[in-house]
Design a protein around this nucleic acid. Structure first.
Lengths: 340, 340
DNA sequence: GATTTTTTGATTTACGTACATCAAAATTGG
DNA sequence: CCAATTTTGATGTACGTAAATCAAAAAATC
């Protein structure tokens, strides 16, 4: 049986009340006494029974998710997963609220973060916009002891406790190798469709993609990036235009708006063999993978990201360790054969 | 606030004791009264606070993992993950025991299962050997209300509650497509190295692999399967021999013993360009992926499988729902760019 | 050494559930 | 209608922790 507070009290030769004072850092304990208790805790290997403690405290975990107001399938999926988590709230003792902020607007994000500092949630998950102000605001909150995890898009160099998202440089590199290997010895040009080069994850995917292409597939030339702003209509126009170039033999779509991409491919590339790698598994990309319009899909599982963020925030709020391997968000590679 | 037993008692117009009798299916409640209580439970949406209940009961979850005594890196990894889970036992209220049985020995497995029926663990996870006797034994335990999940290797057609492992047919299909696409228009022969065709997962991988190869890559011919018995030495000899055949341009290793495969490749294929897809990420296959001896690794994450099995068994023991998407074990595809 | 202040102990209630006991009420059988 | 039986209620204790109160003891101050 694991030791309880009673065991510590006995071992340290103090009363329950004193143990409680130490455990919950309440004042009125002499230094020597505190040390006696801490020694007993260490020696008996006591760990607080979180379930019992939460029951006694009537504790809930008020969590805030800050999301950009972007209208694309990935963000819709993310929202849906958060709603699922809200459904599970009562069983998990969480109390989840989402805040929408304008996309790509560091100032708006910063002001929300500053408000939260007053509201005192016990954890914050945010889809970070990469800007110095945001980094500063996050660091400030971390110093005020708020658990913070970045979601989907990281804030490198900040003090955030954890990042629940994929390694986008690795994703770009993987896309490059898939395209390069699928194309084999062929020479030609590769079109890259992104949402916006202002978004960190897209920049990183491109960075990884370009690096591997340059180093390992010199016969493939990357064309200037098409910025489709994650909008299917824009993406459609850009890709349709680009496909006028007969030298294009491959496409890497690293952002959203794949509906437009797929439409353009079906209209313009019926007679050509294009190799296409795209991001994010949606109903559209799935269908395109199955009908061979797309050759591979790279995906991050929004459900895993949300559940992981919640687990990590709760653990940090309780000062507990997380299982690192469990919280690593994997880059899923889907071919038509291993679709879920 | 979520409703408590008190709320139900009040709503149903009965006493706490009666609610308790209903909730814990104790005798001595008239049919009409039981229905009143059940209605109140439904209407208030009451769900038992599992944490509080476990605290009151002093409940632990005695779980048994039945593993084959196979000496390969995957099974070692699986064992290590179970040991990790045992370390977390006290926090998770689990009490995990592993039983080793001789590999590929249905009778031994059956006799262990029969013993367990007397021991009354609250859940059983087993790496199934695919045999009618095993299926019958599992079905019997399920009928006796033991939660049972298969791990790594499934027992299709049985009544097991859940399978914590990858879809091996999909894995084989995926391997075929990767090999086929990587090889492009080349014609040639593919060597397949398996552990044993007596193991269901290996059979299924081969089945998926052959299907896709036949249907979509007619220029690639699959050579007769080499059975390396998951032994590096045997694998080494078989592959070294096979590589005498100059027509081989690709290798699919669907079992263990990859250390021998890699050694053979490095000795015999220095002058040739072979495309190789292997299963299971280990220190050896990882190194081989990085130095380009292997082109892609398919993997199942043993840690996820173990944690998932535990979550599912606990949920079944409590009669709770599981989050399906969370418990789906994914086939990881690793290229050298997305290694963890 | 007396007084004030700080530290510690003892005790109680609570969280939501499980489980046991005993008495009271309702139902059933004859 | 009475007795036997079944059903229900009332109540208490327990699980491991949190949090509060008040008294007692110890330490610090003058």
């Amino acid at each position: 049986m694991r030791p309880t507070v009673h065991d510590i009290a006995a071992a340290a030769g103090v009363s329950l009340a004193t143990v409680d004072r130490v455990l919950n850092q309440r004042p009125g304990v002499r230094h020597v006494t505190r040390e006696k208790v801490e020694t007993a805790i260490r020696e008996l290997g006591y760990v607080r029974d979180v379930a019992a403690a939460n029951l006694a405290k009537g504790r809930t975990y008020p969590l805030v998710f800050i999301l950009p107001a972007s209208d694309n399938s990935f963000m819709h999926g993310l929202n849906a997963e958060i709603r699922q988590a809200i459904v599970r709230s009562s069983a998990e003792r969480t109390d989840i609220r989402t805040i929408e902020v304008p996309a790509f607007d560091p100032a708006a994000l910063v002001s929300v973060l500053e408000e939260l500092s007053r509201e005192k949630p016990c954890g914050i998950a945010l889809v970070a916009t990469d800007a110095p102000d945001v980094r500063a605001a996050v660091d400030r909150l971390v110093r005020e002891r708020f658990p913070i995890v970045t979601l989907v898009s990281d804030l490198t160099g900040s003090l955030r406790h954890h990042y629940a998202g994929v390694d986008n440089i690795a994703a770009g590199r993987t896309a490059a190798r898939l395209l390069g290997r699928f194309l084999g010895p062929r020479k030609g040009e590769i079109a890259v469709l992104a949402g916006s080069m202002l978004v960190r994850d897209h920049r990183e995917r491109l960075e990884g993609f370009s690096a591997v292409m340059a180093a390992e597939f010199p016969d493939l030339a990357i064309l200037p990036v098409l910025e489709g702003r994650d909008d299917p209509e824009v993406a459609h126009r850009l890709v349709a235009d680009a496909l006028g170039n007969a030298g294009i033999i491959g496409v890497y779509s690293l952002g959203a708006g794949n509906r437009g991409l797929i439409r353009a491919l079906k209209e313009k590339a019926v007679d050509r063999v294009l190799t296409v790698v795209a991001h994010e598994l949606t109903a559209h990309t799935r269908a395109a993978l199955i009908d061979n319009t797309i050759d591979a899909i790279l995906n991050q599982d929004a459900g895993h990201e949300v559940r992981s963020a919640i687990r990590v925030l709760k653990a940090k709020a309780d000062g507990l360790a997380v299982i690192e391997a469990q919280e690593r968000i994997r880059l899923d590679i889907f071919l038509k054969d291993n679709l879920p």
